[in-house]
């Protein structure tokens, strides 16, 4: 049946390199969304240990103070920043803001107005801001 529909399926999402930075941003948006969802689930499990008493809560908090805990939190910071900034770009674009104006297309038709430099700049800024926030978070957590 799969052969009949010839649908690319989930592997269509997994390779972000074929269609430029916009497709890479789409892939990263999905990845960070799933990462944040996993963090929220883990966060609920973490905070729910408080019902088992102070010792259980302190033990759980110790986990976040390890090197692995700091790295995971730094990743969460990076994912949050990218997802927020790129999310604002996508929301504005989906409202028709910054996607260019329709016009007479010229040969060789390889510069679609919707994939303009404003959007590319926003994507690079989202990645840059996420990296900066992660570095700052690592600096605070490791106290370097």
């Amino acid at each position: 049946m799969e052969k009949q529909t010839n649908r690319e399926g989930i592997k269509g999402w997994l390779n972000p390199t074929r269609y430029g930075i916009e497709r890479f941003a789409y892939w990263l948006m999905r990845l960070t969304g799933l990462g944040l969802l996993a963090y929220f689930v883990a966060h609920i499990i973490e905070t729910s240990t408080i019902v088992d008493g102070k010792d259980a809560w302190d033990k759980m908090l110790e986990l976040t103070q390890t090197t692995e805990g700091h790295i995971i939190l730094a990743l969460v910071i990076g994912m949050s920043v990218f997802h927020t900034v790129n999310g604002i770009r996508v929301m504005l674009g989906q409202g028709g803001i910054g996607v260019g104006k329709p016009g007479r297309p010229d040969y060789p038709y390889n510069k679609p107005a919707s994939l303009n430099n404003k959007h590319k700049l926003c994507i690079y800024a989202s990645i840059g801001l996420a990296a900066l926030a992660m570095l700052y978070g690592l600096q605070v957590m490791f106290g370097v």
Binding site: R18, Y19, G20, E22, R23, A25, Y26, V90, G93, Q94, G95, G96, V99, G100, P102, P105, D106, Y109, P112, A113, S114, L115, H119
Partner: peptide
Amino acid sequence: FAGSCSKVCPKGVDPAMAIQ
């Protein structure tokens, strides 16, 4: 808004812009 449709269009239609 992944924009891949507009990237591959051979006639400059820019479906991503139309959809937004």
